[in-house]
């Protein structure tokens, strides 16, 4: 009985959570004049014109490809650099470790508006403007610290005896790290990968500032629909629905790592 109450509560939460997304889906299947003229719970004459426009217009679909490209690059850089660093923070004490750890996070704390200009100047100096690498690198500013923090938390949850036993057994550090340690914290890696993906995927200000055409992200393409003649709600909603898809796939792939958790018995 108690379990059922909990399940009912959870289902209500999910319904509330899905309502705005359903409304977006509803809008994406209707024409703009239809959306603005009447209220309806479901599209009476569903049309996929909005989606067809996005998939056939290069300025639309290249936005998705650009975003996917720099986001993947960013997730790879963030994880590869953060894994060893997080291990250092969780296992060793070294000169300045606590200050450095907190300093990392302070990089997420600056209000972006005024910082965009020096960012643009900095990346212009290195001739990186309008490249995917520029956005991937700029997003490291907030994703790498986050990755270090999350991974450090999970690594500290693994007893140090595991490291000690492995070193006594003659494992080298890289072999221990890759074959013993990394599988143990796969929950953490899954969560980290998802969050890096997510924050890089939805970030707009930096990505828009550092790109013009060749690496223009989808979120910036979408602001184009805000034009003099008002919004094209249907098109915007369809584009919004499509922005959810890649992330939903990512979480689908990492779900096993999230759901299985940390099986200490296996070591």
């Amino acid at each position: 009985m108690k379990l059922q109450k909990r399940t009912v509560g959870l289902i209500i939460y999910f319904i509330l959570l899905l309502l705005p997304i359903y409304w977006m889906l509803n809008m994406s299947l209707r024409t703009n004049s239809d959306i603005l003229s009447m209220f309806t719970f479901y599209p009476h004459e569903p049309t996929i014109d909005n989606y067809i426009k996005i998939f056939t217009d290069k300025s639309w679909y290249s936005g998705y490809l650009n975003s996917l490209y720099y986001v993947s690059m960013n997730v790879a850089i963030s994880l590869l650099t953060a894994l060893p660093a997080a291990y250092a923070f969780s296992r060793y004490s070294f000169l300045g470790d606590k200050h450095l750890f907190f300093w990392l996070l302070t990089n997420r704390m600056a209000p972006p508006a005024v910082f965009l200009l020096p960012f643009f100047q900095l990346y212009s100096t290195f001739n990186l403007i309008d490249t995917h690498f520029a956005v991937a690198l700029a997003h490291c500013l907030f994703n790498v610290p986050l990755a270090v923090w999350i991974l450090e938390g999970f690594m500290s949850g693994v007893p140090r005896e595991i490291d000690e036993m492995a070193y006594i057994d003659g494992y080298s550090f890289p072999r221990f790290f890759l074959t013993v340690f990394t599988p143990l914290i796969r929950t953490g890696i899954g969560v980290t990968a998802f969050f890096c993906f997510m924050f890089s995927w939805v970030e707009l200000l930096l990505a828009r500032t550092l790109t013009t055409t060749a690496a223009k992200p989808i979120a910036a393409t979408m602001t184009r629909t805000v034009s003099a003649s008002g919004l094209d709600w249907g098109l915007l909603a369809a584009a919004g629905i499509l922005t959810i898809v890649p992330g939903a796939l990512v979480i689908w792939f990492v779900r096993n790592h999230l759901a299985k958790g940390f099986a200490l018995g296996r070591v």
Binding site: F14, L17, L18, P20, I21, F194, M198, W201, V202, L204, I218, A219, M222, T223, L236, A239, G240, T243, I244, P246, G247, A248, I251, W252, R255, L258, A259
Partner: peptide
């Protein structure tokens, strides 16, 4: 997990 993550994945302006 998939359902709960959905709102996080929409760009902020959208």
């Amino acid at each position: 997990l998939v359902l709960v993550a959905l709102p996080l994945l929409i760009p902020w302006n959208v």
